[in-house]
């Protein structure tokens, strides 16, 4: 079996963000982390590989040298076998082009399962896994909180509005990871050393035979929404009830 798994870097959610001069992305000294949902996807891939001997795991990222560092440290150091970087400028691609880049890589690698984070916590679009599945004509199981692979099937429990849904999907398939899927492991020192020697391919978008590299959605401007102001601190429950009643008229 072969599993392709995503390793996307995102800005630290607690970092202060500066909007780039052209207003289309962020800039400056931002701290980056591996997208938390990708960490769950990577952990899931490793667990499937541990349970199914002979499974190969491949991590893919789109970006620059910095992204390559995250593929090595976030995926290979944890135990993923190989890495692939597709060079592209993050700010100039949309979910649709990302999905088509993945599709190009899937055609080269022919994995049985593509495991992605359910969303990237910077763009927050929650689209790539579903787009990729449709481009490939594969079944999908998004927002997974439990994955069991047996034979050529995966039984996936999904976190949906109103409860938990379980689907059976045939391989090859696309699965997107939700946060409660697992507890991502830490990279060991030995893992970090090994990661440096693991196979790592660098591809250009041109290597992937895409029909075009046009985006369908463009950011035309970023802005900071007006924040909420802190209100008052009340001294006790009685004052809270009184304020909610007479001032806010909320109860």
């Amino acid at each position: 079996m072969k599993i392709l798994v995503s390793a996307k870097r995102v800005s630290d959610p607690n970092a202060k963000l500066a909007i780039a001069k052209d207003g289309k992305w962020i800039e400056g000294d931002v701290e980056y982390i591996l997208n938390p949902f990708c960490e769950n996807a990577i952990e899931c891939a490793l667990q499937i590989a541990e349970a199914n001997e002979g499974t190969e795991t491949v991590a893919i990222g789109i970006g620059d040298d910095e992204t390559a560092r995250f593929i090595r440290q976030g995926a290979l150091a944890r135990g993923i076998d190989r890495g692939i970087l597709v060079s592209a400028e993050e700010a100039s691609i949309d979910s649709d082009l990302i999905a088509r880049i993945y599709q190009g890589v899937v055609h080269r690698e022919k994995p049985d399962i593509v495991l992605l984070g359910k969303q990237a916590i910077d763009g927050d679009s929650n689209q790539v896994g579903q787009l990729l599945a449709e481009y490939l004509g594969w079944p999908q199981a998004t927002f997974a909180s439990k994955v069991e692979v047996s034979g050529n099937k995966a039984i996936v429990t999904r976190e949906v509005d109103g409860g938990l849904e379980t689907l059976e999907v045939s391989l090859p398939c696309v699965i997107t990871a939700d946060l409660r899927l697992n507890e991502p492991r830490f990279a060991s020192l030995a893992g970090i050393m090994k990661a440096k020697k693991k196979p790592f391919d660098e591809l250009e978008i041109d290597d992937l035979d895409l029909e075009d590299t046009d985006t369908k959605v463009q950011i035309v401007g970023l802005s900071t929404p007006s924040g909420r102001k802190a209100g008052v601190i009340v001294k006790d429950v009685e004052e809270l009830v009184q304020k909610l009643r007479s001032e806010a008229r909320a109860i």
Binding site: I19, S223, T224, P225
Partner: peptide
């Protein structure tokens, strides 16, 4: 970015 920024997007 978790609502810290608002993006205006065009669909072409």
């Amino acid at each position: 970015w978790a609502g810290n920024l608002t993006g205006n997007v065009k669909i072409s």
